[in-house]
């Protein structure tokens, strides 16, 4: 795995600068700025509907902000055409909240698809690559199944396997832990940390799972909506320790609330949203 020069050189791999984002007249962000360091595991926290998935979609260039700039691996994706975006996206691997696997293809074909599109590997090499990723996320005997035949948790793991199959420079994961049993959570957690440490891949993940966030995150971004005292969307960022010691009442409220019974709440949230 070779990092591109600009990515290896720069400390900041992904950055949002004063981003305004609205869907119709529904304002999601106003003046949001945050950054994700290269080669680190960053976690985006925030209440349900606070726009965590939207941050990932903005980074991928799937939606465009009304104002502000978004830098991904040195390029401002808000200024790129759809065609130029494809160049940036080749460096990204994205796992969607709902999996987003192609439902007309089997799991094997789904994972092989990016390889067939972007590499010239032969069938043997493709099969080996696919099975290595499936093993890594703990899925066996799913080659011939269609996505509709998988459970939600299996689907999400298959989606993660697809997101990392091309060894991207940046991996974006939308709630990889929701709906998983503790063993699978641990496995996915280890996998993400492992690809981060071994390959130096930048990982940005959205999670409701406070326990695993505190274990694996090197950098946490907490999205807070504007209120009477704080105009605009604020992103409180820092290491997990720094966030814990924060005196901002909104951060304290979010973390203590979640820390009390983080897993139970995460399960609630997952059940309500997936």
């Amino acid at each position: 795995m070779n990092l591109t020069p600009d990515a290896a050189g720069a400390d900041v791999h992904v950055a949002l600068e004063r981003v305004d984002m609205a869907f119709g007249d529904r304002q999601v962000f106003r003046g949001l700025s945050c950054a994700f360091a290269a080669g680190k595991v960053s976690v985006i926290l925030g209440g349900s509907g606070s726009g965590k998935s939207t941050v990932l979609r903005l980074i991928g260039g799937l939606v465009r902000p009304q104002a502000g700039h978004i830098f991904v691996a040195g390029e401002d994706v808000t200024c790129l055409s759809e065609r130029q975006l494809y160049g940036v996206r080749k460096k990204l691997g994205m796992m969607f909240q709902g999996g987003a696997l192609l439902d007309s293809l089997t799991i094997y074909e789904n994972l092989a698809f990016p390889l067939r599109e972007h590499t010239s590997l032969d069938e043997r090499a493709i099969a080996a690559a696919v099975h290595r990723r499936l093993d890594a996320v703990g899925l066996t005997d799913v080659d011939r199944l269609l996505p509709s035949q998988l459970s939600g948790g299996m689907l999400r793991r298959a989606a993660l396997a697809r997101a990392i199959i091309l060894d991207p420079v940046i991996v974006l994961c939308d709630e990889p832990f929701s709906g998983l049993d503790p063993v699978s959570v641990k496995r996915i957690e280890n996998l993400l940390v492992q690809i981060n440490q071994r390959l130096g891949i930048t990982i940005v993940l959205v999670s409701h799972h406070i326990a695993s966030t505190m274990r694996m995150a090197e950098h946490v971004v907490l999205l807070l909506q504007s209120d009477d005292h704080h105009p605009g969307t604020t992103a409180v960022a820092g290491s997990p320790e720094e966030l814990r010691q924060s005196s901002d009442p909104r951060v304290v409220a979010f973390l203590t609330d979640e820390c009390d019974d983080g897993d139970a709440r995460a399960a609630d949230v997952a059940a309500g949203n997936t």
Partner: peptide, 8 residues
């Protein structure tokens, strides 16, 4: 969107 993110 998944396809777009795979640069397809």
């Amino acid at each position: 969107d998944g396809l777009r993110m795979m640069a397809v």
